[in-house]
Write a protein that binds this DNA or RNA. Structure first.
Lengths: 206, 206
DNA sequence: GCATTTAGTGAACGCATCGTTCACTATTGA
DNA sequence: TCAATAGTGAACGATGCGTTCACTAAATGC
């Protein structure tokens, strides 16, 4: 548990410093321009320390994204206010995309074709699945209250909200603003999943 | 207008050969692994001829995509069969994504951050806009027939169908199958835009 | 505390690819 | 026929990759 400014770091201490450096580089220069030497220099580490841990740039950045992802994804409890909850979660996702983490995702997409299958799969379950789970929770809660149609739980529908955000982020250079999120909700998501029943009277579920 | 196998090509003749070579490389090795030398060799051209025309790899590939795009995007006339028309156009888009052209798009996404603004803009209007226009046409036709809700013309809704396909393509390594397209239609698109007034289809009212 | 083991440093190396340059050659058309 | 134009192919310096190695700091064992 030493973390003094002097001395030589090792283990997780050093590893986290490298991740932070990688994410900072990612933010500054974008995925395509992240240089191993730059990451090493920024982390005040030797290049050999990087290659000892990860075989190449792609893996390093994926590891950094993974590290960041696990500390970001929240546990979320639906409040009963359907639209309000969705705004909240969607803003959270958009905010996440506006970080180095988002930049890592962009790079991952760009290299999907030349990336090992398992890595692709792993990042999917690491990022897509947790988001889907949150929306499933919100919709289940809404269904119990009668504010959401049961069809909302179809996988393709549950994936819609995060999918819209991801698509927006990927095809622009920036993540969705609050205004865009509201448009997605009012013109796509709510018309599709909401029953139109007011949540004022909670319904009994079985 | 010479196109004999012997001799040295120039102008458009050579340029098209380079585009074809670039697209072939794209298909074989994926965006990230396209090498200028490989494209030049494949086109039986000098590397200098490439750099004389385009400043770097990104521009060359974008030019190749543009070249391909203009010859692919069709004129489309709605038949009156809403779902049938949508299936048709969506399949067309999915098929297009499964070509080198799709691979070029993936690369473009990956480098959005480090690509000049105007290029991004240009590719958007070159690819996104024509697709949106086709769906707008279909929806307008449907509205006139009473099978589509007027709200379908909201920009974000019109962009939904191509957006779903693009998102699917980008986050998997492959483009949407017919089955996936049908799911998108039946669980997202049709419920959102159709009035249910379709003569052949049974419906539930709003 | 001292010696040994483990882990990180920093510089150098060979390699691949980039983007440029240049002397040479084929094609065009005046 | 000859000058102008456009393409070729090889070489070049620069950059970043991924590896290696001699050296050194930190942790561990005795």
């Amino acid at each position: 548990m030493t973390e003094s400014t002097a001395g030589r770091r090792r283990g997780d201490d050093l590893e986290h410093a490298i991740f932070d450096a990688a994410l900072a580089e990612l933010a500054e220069v974008g995925y395509a321009n992240v240089r191993m030497e730059a990451v090493a220099a920024r982390a005040k580490a030797g290049k050999a320390s990087l290659y000892k841990r990860w075989p190449d740039r792609a893996r390093l950045i994926q590891a950094a994204a993974r590290y960041k992802a696990t500390e970001v994804e929240p546990t979320f409890e639906p409040s009963g206010d359907l639209r309000g909850d969705m705004v909240k979660v969607m803003r959270h996702i958009a905010a996440q995309q506006a970080t180095p983490f988002g930049e890592a995702i962009r790079g991952w997409i760009g290299e999907l074709r030349s990336t090992p299958e398992e890595l692709t799969e792993e990042l999917r379950t690491r990022i897509e699945t947790p988001r889907i789970r949150i929306f499933a929770k919100i919709y289940e809660d809404g269904i119990a209250r009668g504010t959401v149609k049961p069809e909302a739980l179809h996988p393709r529908v549950v994936n819609l909200a995060p999918g819209l955000l991801t698509h927006y982020f990927l095809t622009r250079a920036e993540s969705a603003t609050d205004e865009v999120i509201e448009e997605m909700l009012d013109h796509i998501l709510m018309p599709l999943i909401a029953t139109g029943e007011d949540p004022a009277e909670p319904l009994e579920e079985t």
